[in-house]
Each structure stands twice: as C-alpha cells, then as structure tokens.
Design a protein around this nucleic acid. Structure first.
Lengths: 120, 120
DNA sequence: GTCATATTTCAATAATCATTGAAATAGTTT
DNA sequence: AAACTATTTCAATGATTATTGAAATATGAC
C-alpha cells in the first residue's frame, strides 16, 4: 500500500503555470506586496518602479495562474484593486508541500548501474 | 510589533532560481522521479523519453538550483547517480511555505483609490 | 595502447518571454 | 458632447531558454 505519489496526479501543467508565474523577480515582489494587502496598478508602479503597462502584464500572468484576483473600485471604477486569491494560494501551498515533502524521498537499493547489483 | 515579512528577507534571487528550475514540465517530472529514489541519466532517458543530452541539461539546472546532487557509481564510474538534496529541499519548502502562508495576508482598509477614503 | 560505454559539452536553431513605447479601452468629470 | 484619468492592449525588440545533432570528456574492458 501507500502507492508512490507522483506530481502527475496534481496536474503538472497547473503547477508549472503557478511556478512560472512566481519564477520572476518582479512578479515575486508583486505577489509578496499583495500578500500585505490589496493594491492598484498606480501604487505598485510607485513602489516597484515599473512602468504601468509592464505591471499590467505581470498582473495578468499572476491572475491567469489563479494567484490573484481583480476588482474595480466601488466609487470610482477607474481604479482596479488586485488581491491575493487566498483559497487558490492555500491549494498551491499544499501541492508544493507535497511535492517537496522530504518524507516522499525513497531509498533506492536497486540502482540501474553495477552498484545496484551488489546486494542481489 | 510583528513586522511585515517580505520575501526580500529570504533572498528573492535564490527563490527565483529554485522556482525557475521547477517551472518546466520536464524538470518537474525529473525532480518528481528523483523523489522516488536516485537515478542515472540512462534510466531517466527511458522513463521520460528525452534525449540524454537534454536530460543532462535539465539535470544541471536542477543541480545549480541546489535541488539535486550527483555522484559516480562506486564500481563503475561511468554511471552518475542523481539524488534529491534533502536539506536544501526542506529549506526551500519552508521558504515557499512562508511565501504562500495565508496568515501573512493582510487586510487593507487604506486603499489608494476613493474607496479607501470612505472610512477616514 | 584501442574499443566500447555513460555522460557531458558545444554550437546552432526555434520558441518563449520580459521589456518598451504607442495606441486603445473603460470610467469619471465638467 | 469633450477633457481627463487609471489601466489595458498592441506591436516590436531584445534577452532567455528549451531543444537538437555533433563533438568531446571520462571511465572501464580488452
């Protein structure tokens, strides 16, 4: 029992998309900022010293990965607030926890090379 | 107290390198295979249906990110076994756990747009 | 030494992606 | 309506990177 857990079960494609979204210095900083609370494009533009259109590009990638969400200001619809998608983030956290779980590391006595034949 | 934790503290560059290393379908599968025990190039070539030199390329990136290690067969040095670097993986797991920790998500009443002015 | 094996490195191509500046969209104000 | 504002989309460029085939390295067998 306790079949070997493979990441294929957790959908490689989805996980790769999330990892790719975070595997960029600018996006990692954007995401980390959003963990400290919602923010709009203009605010991030100031804090991170990036062009608004570049911000918009990175925000879209984070959104397509499901990491963040967008909503318009209730009083002035020109502002768009970005926020961390808590449920998705928790889900991805669990997936990465499984992927990197040291308990999953298996011993390997039957190596394919000559060394693996010694105990046979 | 409880200063806002930023990922800058955990070295953005290192984390990006690790995320980049895993943000590829082939490398994610390679890493997941190695979680099931050490393996050599030839074995991965079969299992993943990739060219040996391509495997070698991806294995190097995983190694440069600190995720895996390499050692030669004790009896026949032509074989090279790759294995997950347990201490590094645990460390990266902790870092990602912090990055994606839902408890870090902060409320944001003072939004930069008009909506944030309502309660003032 | 030569030959065979496991793997890596090199060089080139193809694809992906970050960045930039200009134009377009959506919303507000007057 | 026009003028203004926040943001996005578009098109183009430059940089990175995955992939491929050929050559090189390293080790062991003869």
């Amino acid at each position: 029992m306790s079949a070997v857990v493979r990441v294929d079960d957790v959908a490689v494609t989805t996980l790769v998309q999330v990892l790719k979204a975070l595997a960029d210095p600018n996006r990692l900083r954007i995401f980390d900022r959003l963990m400290s609370g919602d923010s709009c494009n203009c605010e991030l533009t100031e804090q991170l010293a990036l062009a608004p259109n570049l911000l918009s590009h990175h925000l879209r990638i984070l959104r397509q990965a499901g990491l963040i969400t967008a909503r318009r200001d209730a009083l002035d619809g020109r502002w768009i607030y970005y926020a961390v998608n808590e449920t998705a983030v928790s889900q991805y956290r669990d997936a990465l926890n499984t992927l990197l779980d040291p308990a999953r590391i298996q011993p390997r006595p039957d190596l394919c090379g000559p060394e693996g034949q010694t105990t046979l």
